[in-house]
Computed example of a mutant assay.
Amino acid sequence: MQSKVIQIGEKAIDIKEPMIILFDDSATEPLQQVSVIHRFIEPQEWFELADGDRILFDEQEYRISYIGNHVLRNLQSIGHTTMIFKNWDEERLETSIYLTPHILPTITDGTIISYRKKD
């Protein structure tokens, strides 16, 4: 499963906030300002993501430490999830993916986001 970054909102990346909000191009203008807009590359093979699976931003690899129950449905319908690059606590967001390492990836227009099952 892969998507391509097509737009980065003016307020989408902030090193003080270790997260990236993803939406597809149906996002409203206010959401586009704070989001990374991406488009899935066809043909799409959907699969359940799980703890330990990997997400790559181009060649930058991250491991899923927690994935919320609503992530896959939201990704399929509106291309939405929030990727969080810090430890999760008791109040995990069910629309979010928590990733390690806890460093924001470098993202540019054209970045390919790849979702891969653990080996």
Score class of each variant (00 low, 15 high):
51 D>W: 00
36 V>C: 07
7 Q>G: 00
15 I>G: 00
84 I>Y: 05
52 G>E: 11
5 V>N: 01
11 K>C: 01
48 E>M: 10
8 I>N: 08
100 T>F: 08
115 Y>E: 10
116 R>F: 06
89 D>W: 02
98 Y>W: 09
104 L>M: 06
70 H>S: 14
109 D>S: 11
87 N>Q: 11
65 S>H: 04
88 W>N: 14
51 D>I: 14
60 Q>C: 03
24 D>G: 09
35 S>P: 02
8 I>M: 05
10 E>H: 01
54 R>M: 12
2 Q>L: 08
15 I>F: 13
6 I>V: 14
50 A>C: 06
63 R>M: 12
1 M>P: 09
23 F>N: 10
61 E>C: 12
47 F>T: 10
81 T>A: 15
112 I>D: 06
21 I>S: 04
76 Q>R: 15
4 K>N: 07
80 H>R: 11
72 L>E: 13
71 V>E: 08
112 I>V: 15
61 E>W: 00
106 T>Y: 07
93 L>M: 12
51 D>M: 12
89 D>M: 04
12 A>H: 03
69 N>P: 00
36 V>R: 02
94 E>I: 11
65 S>F: 00
68 G>H: 04
10 E>G: 03
112 I>Q: 06
30 P>D: 08
80 H>Q: 11
59 E>F: 13
10 E>Y: 01
95 T>L: 02
27 A>Y: 02
95 T>N: 08
19 M>D: 07
90 E>G: 05
84 I>W: 04
98 Y>G: 07
60 Q>E: 15
31 L>W: 01
97 I>F: 03
71 V>W: 01
82 T>N: 02
117 K>E: 13
5 V>T: 07
67 I>N: 06
24 D>I: 01
59 E>D: 15
106 T>A: 10
68 G>T: 08
32 Q>T: 04
70 H>E: 13
119 D>C: 05
102 H>P: 06
55 I>C: 12
91 E>I: 03
78 I>S: 11
100 T>M: 07
118 K>S: 13
44 Q>Y: 08
35 S>E: 01
81 T>P: 02
58 D>G: 13
71 V>G: 10
